[in-house]
Amino acid sequence: MTTINNYVLETIDLCKKYGDLVAVDNLNLKVEEGIVYGLLGPNGAGKTTTILMLLGLTEPTSGQALVNGYDPCRSPLQVKSMVGYLPDNVGFYDEMSGEDNLLYTAALNGVARDEAQRRVKHALKRVGLSHAGHKKVGQYSRGMRQRLGIADVLVKDPKLIIMDEPTLGIDPEGIQELLSFIKDLAKEDGRTILLSSHLLHQIQQVCDKVGILVKGKLIASGTISDLEQQLLSQEEQMELELKAVPWEEKLAGICETIDGVDKISWQNDMLLLECHKDIREDLVRELIASNYCPTHLALRGVSLDSIYLRYFHKEEEYHGKGS
């Protein structure tokens, strides 16, 4: 069954339940061709489960996933030959060399021997492992394994690459290298890439679009600037961070007098003001008039990490009220 649309990846009310636990809850995910999509969510949000359903390695309880128009449950081979999957903490056969591991993958994909050798050589070169191809994988470092994992995906020459927590356990330099590589894969090779991560700031520079998945639900999806706007417009409540000198208790009293402030709380080394309109101008004037000098004033929710955090908080509040 094929449907004609421009989504490489689409899920329609995808659900997965493990007994009482709902791992993925009516997920409607759409990924256009040629973009890098970041699937974000805390641990246990259902990212890996979603990915496994996309690959047909786990059967959905209800709903449907479509990869390039194919249902992974009904035509698993078509889907699997199109999709390269890099699992989190990718594993290889330690007693075989890196090259042999990749040749095995190529053979499983039905690539002829000569062509396989060419592809393996090329893939190893691309990830910078040409020198280590003959070494046993048991001797590889964590970073090298990850790179071999990418080479393993490249051997398949897939249309869509799915990476599950690719940045996990790699040093910062390695992460930068990996991210620029991912960018290359999307921009130069024109492949579609789905990344999952629980660290937004690590992958925000490469993702064209992100989706935030919490407790199996996609609670926001779109480009990063879309998300910012969505959040700000939705939010009736704003949070301001304030630091000022002199730093003293009386500061709170001054803030209270400003129209629009609902709640004031001390948080570590700053004052957190909850208000229902933008009071930044009034606040600064008032502070200066009272001989205080603001040293830090920021609107929460503007940095992406705080968007992300707030989404989680919102979700928790929502569940807290529900129960």
């Binding site: 698993p76 081979l77 699997k80 699992p87 056969y93 994909n109 398949k156």
Partner: peptide, 14 residues
């Protein structure tokens, strides 16, 4: 244990 299972099964084989 070696975490190869999901990688192998994501190849186009039943």
């Amino acid at each position: 244990d070696r975490r190869t299972l999901s990688r192998v099964l994501s190849q186009p084989i039943f």
